[in-house]
Write a protein that binds this DNA or RNA. Sequence first.
DNA 1: GGCCAGGACACCA
DNA 2: TGGTGTCATGGC
Length: 206
Amino acid sequence: MDITWLYNQLKTNMGPSGWWPADSKPEIVLGAILVQNTNWRNADAALTALRDETSLDPNSILSLENERLIKLVKPSGFYRNKARAIKSVFSWFNQFEWEYDTMKKYYGTGLRDQLLKLQGVGPETADVLQVYIFDKPVFIADSYTRRLFSALNWMDAKTYQELWNNVSLPKWFTFEDAQEFHGLIDNFGKEYLKRPADFNQSFLSK
DNA sequence: GGCCAGGACACCA
DNA sequence: TGGTGTCATGGC
């Protein structure tokens, strides 16, 4: 597994990924929850409904009635779970008044475990938040990444944890690199991993 | 009309 | 610890 090679190939051939597409950190948090097991189109429909109603202001979102919040996030699917997740995660951020550096220092290396305790936050969402909210250079082993590593014959991981446990980013990776690496992989996945033949004609296959 | 998309979680052995 | 069912929408 040559992470540096992969990162450079993706950067050279695909350009800036433009991830995470959001104007604010609360918006990133919402996107991370709403996109769970669905496509960005559906997640964005829910995000737009939320924006129209609350301007994505955390206090406005937290003060929504549960049934109202459920209705707003409906286009993203799994709306009851996601409404609960939004309340859980936003309540936690509100406890710290969204002071990311304070939270980072407070939890230290226990940040990931704390994230995993929140309703609706599993390993992928926890790592997305670490990378895009808390500016930490960690590896995100989402489904596109697992498919890519499998296509490269690097590792055929069945679960998120299996790949995550066996991959470490190069020491020199900054959080910006981790952000871009993840964005590039998912952009690559959408274009080249729909079928095995797609990968075989990509710039990553030999 | 079935399949799938940037998961998480409860339940079970 | 690992396997399986459930949660649900919208586009193709």
